[in-house]
């Protein structure tokens, strides 16, 4: 990646009198966290490759309010939500693709009651639909061919919304060996970041949740731990480092797997 990316904003498109096919909701982690920014860029590359006419809100985007809500601060959540809904409705947004399961869940499930009804999909679902519609062809696994990959279900994608197959479908397209953890899909275990835990120290216990989960992932002897959430990514990456396995176990978002395999 050497050059800056061209990422159109809603405001620009609107000024030109254009409407994008889909709004890409980047999310706070995807905008600011160094590791997560790479996931954001991978998603953009895939959208471009498939010729999707998309836009971001850019500086008009704001936190969905999810971390405040899960921590119990319903006031801040609803203020954030209503402000975002004003912006989204102002642009008459219909379809949203998110880079983060938390944004996905909140906008899909909790915004409608507050006046914001959109067709919200997670990026793994969207990429899947691009393939299904013949807009994106995958050439095989590239560097991942034959590798062993385990998928960690993000709680707010999997259990909370029943999306288990979209990310797995993409991984399977890479000619890899998908090996499941004992706790997967409905019974998947949290990485430890949810419920605003990401933003605080854990309560007293005898272990960190992300270490426990990383150990479960490592039991499958993977080359790659794949996930679909920037927060899970941080947690699993830290876990792998803690276990001193970062030399032979990588943590990637499914979007990064696709973008890398396709040499984008």
């Amino acid at each position: 990646m050497s050059e800056a990316m061209k990422v159109p904003t809603m405001a620009e498109m609107n000024a030109k009198g254009e409407t994008p096919e889909v709004l890409f909701w980047v999310g706070c982690a995807g905008s600011f966290d160094d590791r997560a920014k790479k996931i954001t860029k991978a998603i953009v590359k895939i959208l471009n490759k498939a010729g999707v006419k998309f836009a971001v809100l850019g500086t008009e985007e704001s936190c969905t309010g999810d971390p405040a809500k899960r921590a119990g601060n319903e006031f801040i959540f609803q203020m954030q939500a209503m402000a975002n809904i004003q912006v989204l409705n102002g642009y008459e947004v219909k379809k949203i693709v998110t880079g983060c399961p938390h944004c996905f869940n909140t906008m899909k499930n909790e915004y409608p009651d507050l006046g914001g009804s959109y067709d919200v999909v997670h990026h793994t679902q969207f990429i899947n639909s691009l393939i299904k519609d013949g807009r994106l062809q995958l050439e095989g696994g590239g560097t991942f061919k034959g590798k062993r990959i385990t998928f960690h279900d993000p709680c707010y994608l999997g259990r909370a919304n029943g999306v288990f197959e979209a990310p797995r479908g993409l991984i399977e397209k890479l000619d890899v060996e998908l090996s499941e953890m004992k706790r997967c899909k409905e019974r998947g275990m949290c990485c430890g970041a949810g419920g605003a835990q990401m933003f605080k120290e854990a309560e007293k216990g005898n272990k960190e949740v992300n270490i426990e989960r990383t150990e479960q992932a490592l039991e499958t002897e993977p080359d790659v731990i794949a996930t679909g959430c920037p927060f899970c990514n941080t947690m699993m990456t830290d876990g792998v480092k803690n276990k001193e396995r970062e030399d032979n176990v990588q943590v990637y978002d499914v979007a990064e797997l696709i973008a890398t395999a396709e040499d984008l």
Binding site: A4, M5, V7, S31, F32, C63
Partner: peptide, 28 residues
């Protein structure tokens, strides 16, 4: 602290909302 950040900067961390699209300009 996280609440204050969300309220003031629109993100759970101390980053300015004006910088939200910076990732697109960054090269690595």
């Amino acid at each position: 602290g996280m609440f204050t950040n969300v309220e003031n900067n629109g993100a759970p961390w101390q980053f300015a909302q004006a910088d939200r699209l910076k990732w697109a300009e960054e090269t690595d």
